[in-house]
């Protein structure tokens, strides 16, 4: 990845944590010694409205401050956006699409008539309900992203994320344990074509 910048786009709905996921992933990338950016797309701020967030990851300093139009990886936190938002917009043939759904990758490909790219699916909502007691698909999707991208060392990233969550939720250790388990499960359960 020398001199190359990996660009990622996250799709979600207001309140689902697309921005938080992008920030968490950027933080994890920094812990792995990478240079990174995480930024949201700001439209009307309403719960449930389609939102996007972005990452740039590189081994070298990143000076670009323009929007991302052809991301290598697209992550969809809410499958109900498919067909309403063109989630594959700008996705190159060698790109990766990761969707939070119970459907198989081939079904997703068929549903949106996707030609190129490689599709991954994982039931992040189900995992988060089981492990965290609430539907917060963003942290399990981090696990799926780590698996699909192979970009960062999984164990190291998991450890760093645990340290960060421990700081944030010092009074609620059960939240940390649930998040970590959810990330691990999504990493293991994500399906590819």
């Amino acid at each position: 990845m020398e001199n190359e910048i990996l660009e990622i786009r996250w799709h979600g709905r207001g309140g689902q944590g697309a921005k938080t996921a992008a920030l968490l992933f950027a933080d994890a990338a920094l812990s792995s010694g990478k240079h990174m950016q995480a930024f949201p797309e700001y439209g009307p701020e309403r719960m449930g409205a389609p939102v996007a967030a972005f990452n740039r990851i590189s081994d070298n300093p990143i000076t670009l401050h323009c929007g991302i139009t052809s991301p290598k990886i697209v992550i969809v936190l809410d499958a109900s956006l498919m067909g309403k938002v063109n989630v594959a917009d700008g996705l190159p043939n060698d790109g990766i699409l990761i969707v939070n759904t119970t459907l198989a990758p081939s079904e997703i490909r068929k549903n949106i008539s996707l030609k190129g790219a490689k599709v991954y699916t994982v039931d992040a909502s189900g995992i988060s309900k089981k492990e965290m007691g609430r539907e917060i698909p963003n942290t399990p999707m981090l696990g799926a992203l780590l698996k699909a991208s192979g970009l960062l060392d999984f164990n190291l990233t998991l450890k760093e994320t645990e340290v960060k969550l421990n700081k944030k939720f010092a009074a609620k250790p059960e939240i940390v344990a649930g998040n970590i388990k959810a990330i691990k499960r999504a990493y293991e359960e994500v399906r590819s074509e």
Partner: peptide, 12 residues
């Protein structure tokens, strides 16, 4: 700083 581009953009 530039609004949103820098103010809300996370960097190293």
């Amino acid at each position: 700083t530039d609004g949103f581009i820098i103010s809300h953009g996370m960097e190293k």
